[in-house]
Design a protein around this nucleic acid. Structure first.
Lengths: 408, 408
DNA sequence: GAAGATAGTTTATCATACAAACCAAGTTCA
DNA sequence: TGAACTTGGTTTGTATGATAAACTATCTTC
């Protein structure tokens, strides 16, 4: 692992810092960047010149005078290139084309269709590739083109090696996913767990450095950001709070343990709660639009559905309080398909957290994320890796990626 | 937050990297450092010259020739200065004088004695100060003297602000501990939670970047290191896994919640298990030597005690599996007073973890730490802050500490 | 319209890392 | 035994990049 710096490296760090400052504070002038970063005006000018030559940054006109010469305002050239974010789910994939500021330009849903004699892996790959090619073809011409794709996976992946250790429901085990995808998509590809992607997206919009993103879907996973960094763990599978015990003698879980959180806080748990309160006409398995349908029923005032949502909220709250006590974030986000039911579950989540979190963790605000959070985060994997590299990720990866030097 | 680098900063990073390399790989030659860090020989020589002039590093003689000129071996000058580590417990404090390599030179136990009309805070302070002064007076004369003190606290502290949010058992709330101690001890002081200190000590000895340290005593706390960094959370109180629910309908906890792990995995839990299996002559509250006494009984073959330890081990295992699934560390350490019973609890911990952890977390090895781990880690707070500063901690703290420039 | 303020550039300087040449001191082998 | 080679470490010259200070450009104020 390298931990030494030479002048080229110093320049890269500083250039990245300047770029990040523009990215997050645009429109901003050279002087303001210099003040924010406590660097010399001359250095900023020199770096900005490079960024403009590379078309990552553009001058967008003069700002208001503050008693002297008007400042020239700088901004990200958000259409210098594009990236795609992919949210893999059990039944389908969602692919979004985003510009460099992360804004979604095009979006497409593609079902995962398992035809005869085809492995699940092949079906997933085909769906991914088909959807990706569709949105890539929609990308406007630009300096850097489509610079990469980020994939959010609802299972255990190692984002460093690209290995998919386990994908529940589709029952994929130990698959070199990244290699398979790379063989078919000729752009840089990044992958991570879906909850991690969600956390990344939240960080990008909220500019907070300590947060958790709880993805409640068929299973329950947590993306953790502390000190601004995603936590991956040794094998990359950190955040499997869905398989932490909240009831030592509780329900048997598919993982072999008992009383796992996701037995009580997931789509499947919701289905069970509905069965328990006596709702009728239930599917045997949560379908693709299960939550949506339940929300419609609750919206009609169906007390059974409302009660089931409340029970779900309480149990999400129990596990969330655990996560808060363990990690002490600044905010907590609830994401995944369940967000459609945000209004029905949030009060119970909040109440339960208030009763079960300790000390300052009681103050942690719980929010419901937007449905696009994960796909946004997937795109963020690319933007972060290629554009927002900093000291941190250098140390993390051990090798030095090359920010801001994309091939044309 | 500063994220820019100039040549002075570059030098500091590199100097620290060289020092850390010597610290961890001594004895080592200049050439080997250059190869390890992928830096130029000339640069290494220049930095080493400075380190030798400052007496942080010494030349300890020639090594074996590898076909040419013999290398001059470098080593940490471990007696250039000293630091003290303090382990605060409910009934007493343990203070250790350590040299720069972290080796304990002197150790002293001081009771916390509450005399009439004295607040708990005062009693704790007086005990700390008395013990510190005793070991400081034993420090040999050296270039830098006693460079600082690190304090491990069995409660919720913010290591940045020095604020003690809550210290259970002694029932101290919201106290500016660092300020109070600084008023009395005129050396730099660092504080952190006891489990965090334990984790730090383990990291120092094992050179691993992903680990958890579970401190089982009157309560249960976890120190988490991922990517080589301690996790503190937003308010500094991360790691309170003792207050995570493992039984949603379980025992009422002092924190107001139900079924918290520490109700099932702590000294108090052990006492309850003993009551449940019908052991007699039990104290109403775990005394200072409670674990020690229980181990003695178990050593005589007392089946009740052995069974109680096994039950405790199972419940430590349930919570530990949760921690592993949530954080995916490389190894797990059990520390705190319970380590005396390591042989009695470890098999059950391992079995439970094997049954309840998911996927690769099943492979995580569980070890019993030595009793001095926490006090070692407390000393490490000082060594780490003053000597082993690197890119990482810069980003973390946002401000730039000044390593290797101690006043004489 | 002169004085002052702010934005940004140009120029000279300085610190630091690096490369290459060099010196020092060992080993190998004819 | 000594010439050739190898390795460890230093010296010297160079390149890079950040900074400070002087300078230009442009605006506001009075």
């Amino acid at each position: 692992m390298t931990t030494s710096i030479d002048s080229a490296m110093m320049r890269r760090f500083n250039k990245t810092a300047v770029f990040r400052t523009i990215y997050q504070n645009a429109p901003i002038s050279r002087v303001d960047i210099a003040n924010l970063l406590e660097m010399n005006k001359a250095t900023i000018s020199s770096i900005v010149d490079e960024l403009i030559a590379e078309e990552f940054v553009i001058e967008i006109g003069y700002g208001e005078s503050r008693g002297g010469r008007k400042p020239m305002l700088l901004s990200l050239n958000e259409n210098a290139g594009y990236c795609i974010g992919i949210d893999v789910q059990i039944t389908h994939v969602t692919v979004a084309l985003c510009n460099l500021s992360g804004k979604i330009i095009e979006q497409h849903h593609e079902p995962i269709y398992l035809s005869d004699g085809m492995s699940v892996q092949e079906a997933l790959l085909q769906s991914l590739i088909a959807a990706s090619k569709k949105v890539i073809s929609k990308a406007p011409t630009s300096k850097y083109g489509v610079i990469g794709a980020g994939v959010a996976i609802p299972g255990m992946v190692n984002s460093q090696t690209g290995y998919l250790h386990y994908l529940p429901n589709l029952e994929i085990h130990e698959w070199n996913f990244l290699e398979s995808l790379r063989a078919n998509l000729k752009i840089p590809i990044f992958i991570d767990n879906d909850a991690n992607c969600g956390a990344l997206a939240v960080q990008q919009t909220c500019h907070l450095n300590h947060l958790v993103f709880v993805n409640v879907g068929m299973g329950t996973g947590v993306g953790i950001i502390t000190n601004g960094n995603l936590i991956h763990g040794y094998d990359g599978i950190a955040g499997e709070f869905g398989h932490t015990t909240i009831a030592a003698m509780g329900l048997k879980c598919s993982c072999g343990s008992y009383g796992c959180w996701e037995q009580y806080a997931s789509e499947r748990a919701l289905l069970r709660y509905l069965q328990e309160v006596g709702a009728y006409n239930l599917p045997s398995f949560p379908s693709a639009h299960f939550i949506e349908e339940c929300v419609l029923r609750a919206d009609t005032g169906d007390a059974l559905y409302i009660r089931a949502f409340q029970t779900l909220g309480q149990h999400i709250g129990i596990g969330l309080a655990n996560v808060l006590n363990g990690l002490n974030p600044q905010i907590a986000m609830i994401g995944g398909p369940i967000v459609l039911a945000g209004n029905y579950i949030l009060p119970d989540i909040e109440r339960t957290v208030a009763n079960r979190a300790v000390s300052l963790n009681r103050r942690v605000k719980v929010h419901i994320a937007s449905p696009e959070t994960v796909v946004h985060g997937a795109a963020q994997l690319v933007l972060r890796s290629l554009l927002l590299v900093d000291i941190e990720s250098l140390k993390e990866s051990g090798e030095f990626p090359t920010p801001l030097t994309l091939p044309h």
